[in-house]
Design a protein around this nucleic acid. Structure first.
Lengths: 260, 260
DNA sequence: GAGTGGTCTAGACCACTCC
DNA sequence: GAGTGGTCTAGACCACTCA
């Protein structure tokens, strides 16, 4: 492994990242990129054990400490999971603990046992992407996208209505039947069946009043306040692969966030 | 520095943290605790430079690498800030970049220049804590707390209404006049005048309909949907020191969150 | 007991900031 | 050039898991 030198002319003023300047890149960042590439290419699949630190150090020709630092950061980003004595594993959405990494809605009274969430799929069809959807997903306006609509219920009461958009190409073959038959989280299905792992997401949250349609779907009064959550999810390499527009009923649940 | 041994009887079954078992504590965690204590005691004040890694290593009798790992974690928790070539500084709320660490409301169209936020204080008085407020702040119901009410405006339009509760004791001397005269963020004032640093916070977010009073204060129609944000802020040692109930107008702004 | 990640050390050298 | 944090190495030992 070659270190990227701060090559020849040290002409650019200190502190300024001059245009196109060959900036210093630490070795462990390069290792991190190599590991990420192996994850992306499917060399190590979600849930699997990756080679030991010593093995990777040999493979990349660096010290174990350098591999360690790379893995540290990937673990901090939730791409890998370390387990002392066992090894380092690729993170997966098929795991109890990770189930609520993306849905941040929790019961106001969380003392009782966690209730099972029921899902009803209302639609799953191909449509042409509207301009805003296309822009966010990084496809051309009018390109085909998959649209999924569903309602989540808890103890029979509607809690969430979601409108989900996926680029058609990578999710070819995703049908209503497949959705109905699948038990786990949607992101686990995407991971298993389509090799697309959601790694990161950004949400825009606002309060809106329920319109007639939404009120009907969520069994609330028209005009009731609902939490509107627009989520853009990214896979490896910061590629946007899902747009989700949700309406949450927050009468007995709330969106939980931690600031630090 | 003594390492905490996994003391005598290794009787508890592996993997289970048996009651009161003297668990293994790495050296760097102990160093981290010592540094935190110095921060809490005011030995190093917000904005100040702390001793160099080498100096701390000597003081604590450990290697620089161990101090480094401790500082790494404190920096990740936003308690310290490293600056290559200059040193390590205590984080402070008096800094441009940190201004919006806690207020996550951003304009829908963030292309224009950031607009200045105007503040109007509606109240600042001592009241007896209601049961729920007392519980969250960790004081006894009926104890005195400080209540501050304010409205934030942007370009003259009301954006946020907040009802803030502080335990009376540590904030003795905080008056309406002091609030009016202060330019920076509230958390910067708390830090400078009362030695209380907000380090972490938890928010519960829901959607509510504006009542008559709230609609008046925020200049919206009664019944309009508002974002309700209840924030509990913590200082060093996970001590709750502020409860804030806010209502955000999200017609041209949204709450931004990142999931990973 | 072998293998894994986790901690700790000591030392070298690099990049950055400031005088 | 002195001082700081940032990177990288090599090696020792520890805690944990599993066979």
């Amino acid at each position: 492994m070659q270190r990227m030198a701060t090559s020849s002319p040290p002409q650019h003023p200190p502190g300024s990242a001059a245009a196109g300047a060959p900036v210093f890149s630490p070795l462990y960042q390069q290792i991190k990129a190599l590991i990420t590439r192996s994850l992306q290419s499917g060399e190590w699949k979600p849930g699997e054990l990756i080679p030991s630190e010593a093995e990777l150090a040999t493979r990349f020709g660096v010290s174990q400490g350098t591999v360690r630092k790379a893995i540290d950061e990937l673990a901090a980003d939730n791409l890998l999971m370390r387990r002392q004595g066992r090894g380092t594993f690729v993170t997966t959405h098929h795991e109890e603990q990770v189930k609520f990494r993306f849905l941040r809605l929790v019961p106001d009274d969380d003392s009782g046992p966690a209730l099972r969430m029921d899902r009803e799929f209302l639609a799953c069809h191909r449509v042409r992407a509207a301009a805003d959807v296309a822009r966010l997903l990084g496809v051309k306006a009018g390109d085909m996208v998959l649209e999924i609509r569903r309602v989540l219920r808890i103890a029979g009461r509607p809690l969430v209505y979601e409108d989900i958009y996926l680029p058609a190409a990578p999710f070819r073959g995703l049908t209503a039947e497949r959705l109905e038959g699948y038990k786990g989280p949607l992101y686990a299905l995407f991971e298993s069946d389509f090799g697309t792992r959601m790694v990161r997401a950004e949400e825009k949250i606002r309060a809106v009043c329920a319109g007639a349609d939404e009120a009907g779907l969520l069994q609330v009064e028209p005009g009731q306040a609902l939490l509107s959550v627009e989520r853009l999810s990214f896979s490896y390499g910061d590629q946007a692969v899902e747009l989700r527009r949700g309406l949450y009923v927050t009468t007995h649940h709330h969106y939980r966030n931690t600031l630090s």
